[in-house]
Design a protein around this nucleic acid. Structure first.
Lengths: 334, 334
DNA sequence: CCACATAGGCTCATTGTGAGAATAACTACG
DNA sequence: CGTAGTTATTCTCACAATGAGCCTATGTGG
């Protein structure tokens, strides 16, 4: 977290020039648990000591890597999310604005321009392309509306993965185009026998609905940039959705704040993660009610107005009652 | 789900005589996604068609299997939870009462006897054994109270994994004893160099607190039976906790009910899964408010009293608004 | 002293939740 | 037929939680 922008640690661009999430092979001989392995690996490569670490998901779809497409081995990635305080990473790694990879997720100032400019048109085109007289168009419309809070539906911040997958399927983000090209090239070379899907796969919920990957006949008008290497944007979306859910019932935000902070800072971090504006008054009431923080007695060095009280996180709360989070109080025009 | 008892599919006892969860090797050549692989595998072995399937967790601690303890390879298990309607499994597999493996989780009729008879004493002994003048005893007491809702703390049904891990650490469940013996035997034979923990490992939240596994100097008075093969009881606890959390915000219970059901049946399933009694009036109000179900017009074949209205799950809800679950309304004497 | 900016509180209507009780529709038995 | 027993279904009521708007406090810079 830097000021108001959530950041994600990325490592040097891969062959195609896209940033990647830090990752590496798992060596079973070095660590007792997978989590310890993650901590050690990140510490060695980037010099960062991780605070909160949580297993995210294990990705194992076919053709996640170009190597496999060319006949190489299947890649399984056991992904973890971790939260760290701002720090300078080692060379080769860099903090990048999280929302640069998914601008549609940031609604702190209301629905972003990218929705009207690119997302909604792409979804509409896709919906229209599904007109087959058997209700496909209606189903597509419903799915798009729910995912993106269009047509009267409410925006659900936690559905970040669903949105990412939908945009991929629709062909509105650039890895859809990239993977289509890769797939075509490989098929031409006659390498893989049954290349039925590249990169992303059917998500939970879509179950057995026969996801087919992006198809060229439904090309979107404008394709959004921001692809990461392989399926890393999808992994990022998974992490974002998971954190947004977690923030509501576990005090994880504090991992992103310095030991002393103002309530305004806390609110900013919550807003940055959830991507939603928060009603200040209600937020303060909520935080006070949970007992998650206590005054330090210090005051913020002024930045224009009345000085703010400084607070610290009460670690005891982790042991007390069922530790609540600080996610509610969602107001705003979404 | 059979009548009021939640069941789990187990396969033939392993060498030590303990039941195991269905599992098998992952063959990367057969399926496009891990989930499809799970579905196919279960269908082939047990003849069951899975409904709801969700990736649970990837277990990768050292020494999860006796083979590794004897110098064999590290085992990684990518676990999935699935919900199916009652059905006869193929030979070799059997449905067993879920709560036979964790009786302390079933509080439908209030706190079960096993709490006072075995769990609480074991926790007290462990707490007392931590008296070192540096607050260890107090920390243990707090941890035990939170996990098991003792000493005025509220019972949190979702913390099933936390409880299972604590009981293992405390040495109150039999795989703790089993693993201790295994470990001792191996160490004696001088096989493994640094056998620091067998079976379970530190869970999320305990982070780097230096979990050390069960130690013989803190042997519990009574050891609870019900171990599954390897760390499968732990995996089961993970699944239970996950489902209990999910039930609150996704309509997953319906996977366990026949197409037509009464509200009482629905309530029973929810109670069975959450392990908590539910206030009937409030439950009905909640279910009605969510619009998850609709009347079929039929009535239940009577079983003693007034006939009940039959309902069906409204699948459209999955596409409408943010589909809520049916988990609230927890009343009862817990 | 004023305008401006940010922090911190207060109020109020509405909704949701927990708990208890009342009523309805049936069966079984005398 | 009447009454007890059993299960289903609905209502009420107090109280807590939530969403939204407004007001006050305390600083800065002219």
């Amino acid at each position: 977290m830097t000021a108001d922008t959530p950041r994600v640690l990325t490592v040097g661009d891969d062959a195609s020039g896209a940033p990647a999430l830090p990752s590496g092979p798992f060596d079973p001989t070095t660590d007792r648990t997978l989590e310890k392995s993650v901590r050690r690996w990140v510490a060695e490569r980037t010099g960062l000591g991780l605070g909160y670490v949580e297993q995210l998901y294990t990705f194992g779809d076919r053709y996640r890597t170009p190597e496999e497409l060319a006949g190489g081995p299947r890649a399984l990635s056991i992904a973890y999310v971790a939260l760290v305080r701002e720090a300078r990473p080692a060379t080769g790694a860099a903090w990048r604005d999280l929302y640069a990879f998914c601008p549609w997720e940031d609604r702190r100032a209301g629905a972003p321009a990218v929705i009207d400019a690119a997302v909604a048109p792409a979804l509409s085109a896709w919906t229209a392309a599904g007109a087959d007289g058997r209700g496909t168009a209606r189903q597509r419309r419903e799915r798009a509306d729910i995912a993106f809070g269009l047509g009267g539906a409410a925006w659900d911040a936690d559905r970040a993965l669903e949105r990412c997958e939908l945009l991929y399927e629709v062909g509105a983000i650039d890895e859809a185009v990239r993977d289509r090209a890769l797939r075509a090239a490989e098929t031409e070379r006659g390498a893989a026998a049954s290349v039925d899907a590249v990169g992303h796969a059917v998500g939970p919920g879509a179950a057995d609905s026969g996801y087919a990957g992006p198809t060229s006949d439904e090309a979107a008008a404008a394709v959004l940039p921001g692809a990461m290497a392989l399926d890393h944007r999808r992994i990022l979306a998974t992490a974002l959705g998971r954190l947004r859910g977690k923030i509501k019932y576990r005090p994880v935000v504090f991992e992103l704040l310095p030991p002393g902070f103002t309530l305004r800072q806390l609110q900013r971090v919550v807003e940055a993660l959830t991507g939603m504006p928060v009603h200040t008054g209600n937020f303060r009431r909520l935080v006070a009610a949970t007992g998650l923080v206590e005054r330090t007695g210090d005051r913020d060095e002024v930045t224009g107005g009345r000085p703010a009280e400084m607070y610290r996180f009460r670690r005891d709360v982790l042991r007390e009652r069922r530790a609540p989070g600080v996610g509610a109080g969602g107001g705003g025009r979404a």
